[in-house]
Design a binder for these strands. Structure first.
Lengths: 221, 221
DNA sequence: AAGACTATTGACATCGTGTCAATAGTCTGA
DNA sequence: TCAGACTATTGACACGATGTCAATAGTCTT
């Protein structure tokens, strides 16, 4: 990291400082403060480029304290990811009763709304595979499940007990498309929201109408 | 890395070794040899878990030599990725002339074939976003372009000069779905090949028939 | 105000990386 | 066949990052 010079918080010469050299505060607050700084840094820079020293400096704290609260840098990072990839909206059930098209339309709108709110900063994570990192993968998969359940609901597929596993797999695959589409919209800005909406809605409809029914067929290719 | 003990290649006691202590060979061969070892290690373990020392040990070579040939570990890694993510098949043009459905069907079959051949080992890379790594992202994007062009061809969208950029974006999004679908098939084994085929074909058809035409509409949502 | 409690520090040991001058195979010409 | 040039290869070095842990110093209790 290219960071400002050390900037010891109380090295202003000739000025006697009022606050104690050691700022001692409630563990929860301190933990939260370090977490916030780490979140900001990890948002702006890739993992390897953020050193524990950077985080400590940002929090105005000794580096050792990070290990004291979070064990190691990796754990802190994973906690940041976990928090930020959790879907905030839990208003899952509010779907129209009407036609499949309308339900899907509503689900897509809900998804894009929730993404727009968070600004999509964490969209670039490469969810699904990553660099064969089991812990990170699990976190992202877990976070994804909420969306997947909603989508299954929207497609009125929740009754299909038979091939539930395979349906989930297909929806999981679709979730990657949705993620990628949102990326083009929010990060790259190559598509407008209506365009992404059309893309996501039409593909989901096709999956519900054709791909899912084809599960039972198992025709050779 | 948990690796076998040092295993100095010529420390067998009591046996006078024939080959010189330093194995000096053609730079191209040496470079290739190191590359091969790195490839094997990076295939089995995540980037951070593979140290330059590991690679050097696997190649039976001093660690410094890796830097001599590849500059730094990261460059070596990126080169491995670049080679392995390049689509081997260049037989792009061989598409049927018939209906849109048939062309798409053929394109999907081609895609799954080429994936099946490489075993999908490198499918887990998190293409598209990764951890905000511009270099890696560029490599994966470049590798992806071949597939995207084929798909555009298959959908008979190559004449649409107007919104070419947005069409490419949509196909790029679709490529993520295809990648993710292949992952479920080859890595997780939650879907069969026919199922993935149906999934990919139906969604691509939907994109060509509905999402792409919707580009010009730009209706509010 | 004394002492207990514990949040916080800073030095230490370890490890991974990249650099570079020194070393030693290999090839050439006499 | 041998000296000497050429260069592939080595190993030591400096540096930076990480995690540990005993020592330190705020803060609270009595």
């Amino acid at each position: 990291m290219t960071q400002d010079p050390p900037l010891a918080p109380s090295e202003v010469p000739g000025v006697e400082l009022q606050e104690p050299r050691r700022q001692r505060l409630n563990p929860d607050e301190r933990r939260q403060q370090i977490f916030d700084c780490a979140q900001k840094l990890f948002t702006d820079h890739p993992y390897e480029d953020v050193s524990a020293t950077d985080i400590a400096a940002a929090a105005g704290v000794a580096r050792g304290l990070i290990n004291h609260y979070f064990g190691n840098k990796r754990t802190l990072y994973l906690e940041v990811i976990r928090v930020n990839s959790t879907v905030s909206e839990v208003a899952v059930a509010r779907l129209p009763e009407g036609r499949l098209e309308d339900r899907i339309d509503a689900a897509v709108r809900w998804y894009l709304n929730s993404l727009e709110r968070t600004g999509g900063t964490w969209l670039g994570l490469g969810s699904g595979g990553m660099g064969r990192d089991p812990d990170l993968e699990k976190i992202l998969i877990d976070a994804e499940n909420a969306s997947v359940e909603l989508l299954i609901e929207a497609c009125q597929l929740s009754d299909q007990l038979e091939h539930r596993g395979q349906i989930r797999a297909m929806i999981r695959v679709y979730a990657q498309l949705a993620r990628s589409g949102a990326r083009e919209w929010l990060l790259r800005k190559t598509l407008t929201r209506p365009q992404v909406h059309a893309l996501l809605a039409s593909t989901l409809l096709a999956i519900a109408r054709e791909a899912v029914p084809a599960i039972t067929k198992d025709l050779p290719h």
